[in-house]
């Protein structure tokens, strides 16, 4: 089965039905392996046991960015090829990306409490992650405001692409702003070299999170395709009865 075949919604449904159990299984195995490694990882000499939060925090941040990247590619598909499956992919990715960005914020603030003594600091990473979260909420709000799905898709696609252009600028300016305002006191991940004993579980967890994302995304896309079918059928029914 080639990628072109997958672009057809019905074929995609068949593919999703077949692939999802396998993907789910692999995800569970990856998580079992990753969590096992994470529990066995030694404490960091500076941060103690809280380094274990990193195994959740970093993969969540990664997924938050990955989801926006997927939405941007799908946005191109929507605007250039007018492909309905691209609309579906973009819409399905938004809530998942928002959820992982939120998880990144929550784990970051739980990490910050013992490290910095407060739940929230206006650290560059956390701040740009917060702006990313707000942008996700904006896209979701847009999807929920426009009733016609293909028009909503095109509006959301433009917003997604503008966001994709603006996000690196936001990241840069927040970094700049942060160094201007505090500089010291903030601990940096890159400052201390990561030991292989910590890097290995982190990579495994990143793979597990990515697999989870792929599974959830395909499942959410399947739901969205079905939701559109229900919508079309209801419209047909309404037309037939009127």
């Amino acid at each position: 089965m080639s990628l072109v075949d997958l672009a057809n919604p019905s074929r995609f449904l068949k593919f999703a039905n077949r692939a999802l159990p396998w993907l789910g299984g692999v995800t569970v195995i990856a998580f079992a392996f990753g969590l096992n490694q994470a529990m066995g990882a030694p404490d960091d000499y500076q941060q103690g046991a809280t380094v274990k939060i990193m195994f959740l925090h970093v993969p969540s941040a990664w997924l938050g960015m990955l989801a926006w990247g997927i939405m941007s590619i799908a946005a191109l598909g929507t605007l250039v090829w007018r492909h309905p499956l691209a609309d579906v992919a973009a819409k399905a990715a938004a809530p998942i990306g928002a959820a992982f960005t939120l998880l990144c914020l929550v784990t970051g603030s739980l990490w910050g409490r013992p490290e910095w003594g407060t739940y929230w600091v206006w650290d560059a990473r956390l701040t740009s992650e917060l702006v990313l979260f707000l942008l996700y909420l904006g896209v979701i709000a847009l999807w929920r405001t426009v009733e016609d799905p293909s028009r909503a898709a095109r509006a959301a696609a433009i917003l997604t692409l503008v966001g994709a252009v603006d996000l690196p600028i936001i990241k840069f300016s927040v970094d700049w702003w942060n160094t201007l305002h505090q500089g010291a006191s903030v601990f940096r991940l890159g400052g201390s070299t990561i030991y292989p004993t910590i890097l290995m579980p982190l990579l495994v967890m990143a793979v597990a999170f990515t697999l989870l994302f792929v599974t959830l995304h395909i499942a959410a896309m399947r739901n969205e395709i079905l939701r559109r079918r229900v919508r079309t059928l209801r419209l047909m029914q309404a037309q037939a009865t009127s």
Binding site: A49, T50, I53, A99, T107, W111, A219, R222, N223
Partner: peptide, 24 residues
């Protein structure tokens, strides 16, 4: 804090899975 972070991750991920399955 570690337990809290893992619990939060569990809640968010379980929420996503539940949302996807219920929606389906």
């Amino acid at each position: 804090f570690i337990v809290g972070a893992y619990a939060a991750a569990f809640v968010v991920i379980a929420g996503l899975i539940a949302w996807v399955m219920l929606d389906f």
